[in-house]
């Protein structure tokens, strides 16, 4: 069954027809071709599909598209500047070598963006806890930690 929803995706208001069984992840990837958001498990275990819903980090694979009605959704594509410029956090992921295969990266960037929004001065432990819903098998998390810490440092010293 299809249902019409109204929501904002990466700053653009839109009206969409979605299947009532469809996940927000499928809506983003298949209907809007926003394929930056990845699927690593489909059941809320890995965080590869993380997006911001009204500013909260959520796994879009276990969030129904119909629930997005009236919501403000931001995916990885919405965190990049309109001119393609990187956010300071994205730049630090690049500079610190926090990217390997890159499959977990959009989810981490989304989660860490929200984390720094809520807590501009996170300790190492707070970063670890705050990002523990995102799995990465390549990096051992070290350089992701470095990237988030550096971003917080730079913002503090600005």
């Amino acid at each position: 069954m299809l249902k019409t929803i109204n929501c904002t995706v990466n700053g653009r208001a839109m009206e969409l027809q979605v299947d009532v069984r469809e996940s927000l992840l499928d809506m983003l990837r298949n209907r809007l071709h926003l394929t930056g958001t990845k699927q690593g498990c489909g059941v809320g275990e890995c965080g590869a599909c993380a997006v911001l819903i009204d500013g909260e980090t959520l796994d879009s694979c276990i969030y129904l598209a119909v629930w997005a009605d009236g919501k403000d959704i931001v995916s990885i594509e919405g965190l990049t500047g309109a001119d393609g410029s990187l956010s300071d956090l994205q730049q630090n992921f690049v500079d610190k070598g926090a990217v390997q295969c890159g499959f977990c990266t959009p989810g981490f960037v989304v989660s860490a963006t929200a984390l720094l929004e809520k807590n501009p001065n996170p300790s190492k432990d707070e970063i670890r806890r705050g990002l523990s819903g995102n799995l990465c098998r390549c990096t051992g998390y070290q350089k992701i930690l470095d990237a988030v810490e550096s971003t917080a440092d730079q913002r503090r010293n600005k």
């Binding site: 990837r29 071709h33 926003l34 394929t35 930056g36 958001t37 990845k38 699927q39 995916s75 990885i76 594509e77 990049t80 393609g84 990187l86 994205q90 992921f93 690049v94 500079d95 070598g97 990217v99 890159g102 499959f103 990266t105 959009p106 960037v109």
Partner: peptide
């Protein structure tokens, strides 16, 4: 030298296409 990997920007912006991303 620790040069930046050529594909890092594509990956942090979600523009890198994996098998499931190709229409």
């Amino acid at each position: 030298k620790s040069v930046e990997r050529w594909d890092a920007i594509a990956k942090v912006t979600g523009r890198a296409n994996y098998t499931g991303d190709i229409p």
